[in-house]
Nucleic acid binder design. Structure first.
Lengths: 171, 171
DNA sequence: GATTTTATGTCAGCCATATTGACTTATTTA
DNA sequence: TAAATAAGTCAATATGGCTGACATAAAATC
């Protein structure tokens, strides 16, 4: 009887633990995106604009194809948002040197400023959470998060020394 | 010079680490919601339906107000989704006993079955990530995630022994 | 007992973001 | 030269949010 009861209890705890995991992801993502949304509204932009600005800022000179793959949306969806950002001077497109079909994307100064403004609060939120949790907890956080992410995207997260493309490779 | 260089390096690592944090959240959330979406499409439902089914399943007998607060949307937004789920027999509403203005929400058998089907993959994804990362990492993950979540929502995540409302309190 | 507040629901319209499908243009590759 | 690729566009559609205004029933308060 004690065995059964404890077995049930373990199952319950496990179920509860997994559900909490699901919900933590939901609430964290929600709260995490809420703050930039307020700023974006001032510009008449939405969350989609933020994502584009973020990833272009992250990888200056990124191609449209790569950006599409990163965002996981269709080019038609990207089109509106991207052309808006280009028209309003937050992003510039320059033809690729090796392949002139490509249009490499970069933030303008204005774009960099907006990216900073948008991401700053998120950066602070993460920094605070990391600081309060401690280095060991951060390692655990990374480990679990990587396990949650599809295998194909894990390569985006090198443990150390990202060996990234040098900033502003062209020009 | 060594000091400056190492200071810059530290800043760079910190920046890189924070950006990876932002991105892990983005990709984890995206991959996490992708699988249920496929199933939902079979029913003509969207992600919003999933969230309603999930939280009603999580707290049987929840009031509409509480559900709204949990989801963080307006009643007009909830309305479409909820009435669809009620009409199609996934959720039943029963008047509150103490306050007959309330309409307490519960999953039907059909609703429970769908909830299981939808959440099962997510549960497995979390379970796998937890298992592979280990108990210590999971503690770190929880710590950081809680730090990312707005203070007002942290009470949803008791460390142990949730002391939840007994399932099916009424009837 | 009358009035106010609360819980819920509904109608209408608007906006952002995503989708699919079809087609175009320029450039590179085979 | 022909085929494949990178990027863009037009059109139609779906989903999921939003605001505002109004309605009903029940509870709480004066």
């Amino acid at each position: 009887m004690a065995d059964i009861k404890s077995g049930v209890n373990l199952l319950f705890l496990r179920e509860e633990e997994l559900r909490q995991g699901i919900e933590m992801l939901f609430f964290a993502y929600r709260d995490f995106t809420a703050e930039p949304d307020v700023i974006l509204a001032d510009y008449g932009f939405g969350r989609a604009h933020h994502r584009v600005i973020y990833f272009v800022g992250r990888s200056p000179g990124i191609t449209v194809s790569d950006l599409l793959a990163t965002l996981g949306i269709t080019k038609q969806s990207l089109s509106r948002v991207l052309s808006q950002l280009v028209t309003e001077g937050f992003i510039i497109q320059t033809p690729g040197l090796r392949d002139r079909r490509q249009r490499l994307l970069e933030l303008t100064e204005k774009g960099v400023a907006l990216e900073r403004q948008l991401t700053e609060e998120q950066r602070q939120r993460i920094a605070r959470a990391y600081r309060e949790a401690g280095a060991e907890a951060v390692q655990g956080f990374r480990k679990v998060m990587l396990g949650l992410i599809d295998e194909k995207d894990r390569a985006r997260f090198p443990q150390r020394l990202p060996a990234r493309v040098p900033p502003r490779g062209r020009s």
